[in-house]
Nucleic acid binder design. Structure first.
Length: 615
RNA sequence: GCCUCGGUGGCUCAGCCUGGUAGAGCGCCUGCUUGGUAAGCAGGAGGUCGCGGGUUCAAACCCCGCCCGAGGCUCCA
């Protein structure tokens, strides 16, 4: 709705002649003194969407101004010429009448000029700063969406391929607690939580990373240990996708909104982006690596034999201007690092084959990060019906391999760029899903970005095998933080300090250093606790740092040339698991456990007494 | 973005209601202790009480605005 508001000494009108849409009325002329005149055009979107909300907002605006100006007389004047996109006359009349009625109820003197007549009018505008104002009023979109939204259906899929529709009442048929949490979340069943997720405490306590109050909310600072973990994860995903056949690229973080496909793709995601003007350009910060990779593909001369063609980029960073109240620790940020692979597929058959491979790749990351994944497939109904056999076959392979059921969402019609996707989630310490790895079948973007293989538009797959690195870490920490069966720990290859050597007294410090150096030469992250504390205290400190191997050396070890190693994985808080082994055996064990994973050296001084605290 | 709660030495928190010299534990430093698997003993240093304004003779405390965090709502390509 468009509205022009005039504070006037008087307004006078006279209806002269009917149009086709004229309302029947006796009030064909009128005059009001000391009044606020509201010229109003009701628009198509008001009509289609939510007329009642427009009425309420318009009345609110008028009253606000009337209050300011201290006037009690209001003229409601239909004025079609304010808009080129008018609503139907029927709705317009209803809206105008409603506005008149509401204002009357609120004790204003209201004069409404007749709708659909050619009218003569005289107006005397007061001419002070507030005397001429225009307002544009948008309908609330909440109710609109409700109207448009046909809800999805959710199913539990078991090994025999049976689909059991799940809803609020039968949710307990899902026995797996984690999968049930995921289903509950999807169905909008919420258990109220008043606590914060445990990873927030852990990241600070362990000197991984922290909030940066002098940036925008949701942008973090990373300390050496957290930086190490992120770098290791980055290298891990790089190796994973490159050995799978992806070609790494790097593309800009910001894009020009005057480029049509960029603008279209960006506009789909509405408010949740950083946009800014620089010079005479309007720019946006990328919220995923799609933009740059699509532009590369658009400019390539693509032959069918190149396909499936996979480009990979670690988007450091992707930016999303999430709502302020929605930012939570590492779970939702405004700047995050997203491994993002896009695969061009010749046709749907090839796309399905790729989808399956990429799905298995996503699941493998759960094993490497030592987290438990829960799977939800989402398909648009038509697509599901057409490829049902293929889908059910994939699901049954998954169930056989991982011994877990899956959730299946069927969407009545396509509303995003994808026709099918899989989301893979870790359940956090409060029973809420952290959705992370994903594969999506995109049938829209190739056309939008004019990516052509010969003369046809290929299918595009989006895949992030771990999801954002920050969220991956979040998932690991939440999983460990909620552990009851044993001590929380990071996977060995991700542990910032893998081994700590503790001399029983400073007599043995040189021996401890010798051991540490030997480990370090073998690419093991090791430090030496040279502090003045007693052994018990040093063990406790090492335990609080989640160090996987603690080597205590004293007289016995020197004499027998053997190490006493406390292995965290096999210990509990009360019972430390200790094992005697030679230095070579320890090295061998660690090398064995980390052999398929990236390595980076200890980013800290080797002596504990020299290691700074970051908080 | 909205609603609720919170922000006090490096960390965890008490004090605020009822205004009057800012507290504890851990950590840190120093000394004693030279030690054997999750907190040895003693002493000491360390605080713009988130920021800005207001009320008051006097503000960590009362009032207003803002910033930051958590929970809830809404959102989540």
């Amino acid at each position: 709705m468009k509205m022009l508001l005039i504070h006037a000494d008087y307004l006078e009108f006279e209806a002269k002649e009917k149009t086709k849409i004229a309302e029947e009325t006796d009030i064909l002329n009128g005059r009001m003194e000391e009044c606020l005149v509201a010229f109003i055009a009701v628009e198509k979107k008001d009509d289609e969407e939510n007329p009642q909300s427009v009425v309420n907002k318009a009345v609110e605006e008028i009253e606000k101004l009337a209050n300011n100006l201290k006037v009690n007389n209001i003229v409601v004047y239909p004025y079609a010429h304010l808009s080129k996109n008018l609503s139907s006359p029927k709705i317009a009349l209803e809206v105008l009448k409603d506005i008149e009625k509401k204002l009357r109820e609120n004790n204003y003197n209201v004069l409404r000029a007749p709708f659909g007549w050619y009218k003569a009018f005289k107006l005397s505008c007061k001419g002070h700063p507030l005397s001429e104002l225009s307002r544009e009023i948008y309908p609330d979109d909440e109710k609109v969406e409700d109207k448009e939204k046909i809800p999805s259906k959710f199913y539990l899929v078991k090994e025999n391929g049976e689909l059991i529709e799940i809803n609020k009442d039968n949710i307990n048929i899902i026995e797996d607690e984690e999968l049930k949490s995921l289903a509950k979340y999807e169905l909008g069943i919420k258990d109220k939580q008043e606590k914060e997720p445990v990873h927030i405490k852990i990241i600070k306590e362990k000197d991984f990373c922290d909030y940066e109050p002098s940036s925008d909310p949701g942008h973090f600072r990373w300390y050496p240990k957290g930086k190490l973990i992120r770098d290791l994860l980055a290298e891990y995903v790089y190796n994973l996708v490159v050995s799978y056949g992806a070609m790494p690229v790097e593309t800009p973080v910001m894009y020009d909104l005057s480029v049509k496909p960029i603008k279209e793709h960006a506009d789909k995601f509405g408010e949740r982006q950083y946009r800014f003007r620089q010079g005479n350009k309007e720019l946006m910060l990328r919220f995923a690596a799609c933009f740059g990779q699509f532009m590369i593909k658009k400019d390539m001369y693509l032959l069918p034999k190149y396909l499936p063609l996979r480009l990979y980029e670690l988007s450091t960073y992707s930016f999303r201007y999430e709502q302020r109240g929605e930012l939570i620790g590492l779970k939702r940020l405004r700047a995050f690092t997203m491994p993002d692979m896009h695969t061009l597929c010749l046709n749907l058959e090839q796309a399905l084959e790729e989808f399956e491979n990429q799905f298995w790749m996503c699941l493998k990351t759960g094993e490497d990060l030592n987290v438990s994944y829960n799977v939800i497939f989402r398909f648009v109904e038509d697509f599901f019906n057409e490829y049902r056999d293929w889908i059910m076959n994939l699901i049954s392979k998954y169930i056989n391999k991982y011994k877990k059921y899956v959730i299946l969402e069927i969407l009545p019609k396509r509303k995003h760029y994808w026709v099918g996707k899989v989301d893979i989630a870790v359940i956090d310490s409060l029973g809420r899903p952290i959705e992370n790895p994903t594969v999506q079948i995109d049938v829209e973007s190739a056309k939008r970005f004019n990516i052509k293989v010969k003369d046809s538009y290929p299918i595009l797959l989006h895949c992030s095998p771990t999801g954002s690195l920050e969220r991956a870490l979040c998932g690991i920490l939440e999983s460990e933080g909620k552990r009851k069966d044993k001590l929380p720990t990071l996977p060995l290859w991700l542990s910032p300090i893998q081994v700590r050597v503790i001399p029983v007294s400073d007599k043995y410090i040189n021996y401890a250093i010798k051991i540490a150096e030997k480990l370090r030469e073998n690419n093991i992250r090791v430090d030496v606790d040279d502090s003045e504390a007693r052994v018990g205290k040093k063990i406790r400190t090492a335990g609080k740092e989640w160090i996987p191997y603690i080597v205590v050396v004293g007289e016995d070890e020197v004499k027998n040339n053997i190490l006493t190693v406390t292995i965290r994985e096999k210990s509990t808080l009360k019972n430390q698991y200790k094992q005697h082994m030679t230095t070579e055996e320890l090295i061998k064990e660690i090398k064995e456990k980390t052999k398929d994973y990236p390595f980076k050296p200890l980013p800290y001084p080797m002596f504990v007494s020299k290691q700074p605290k970051f908080h």
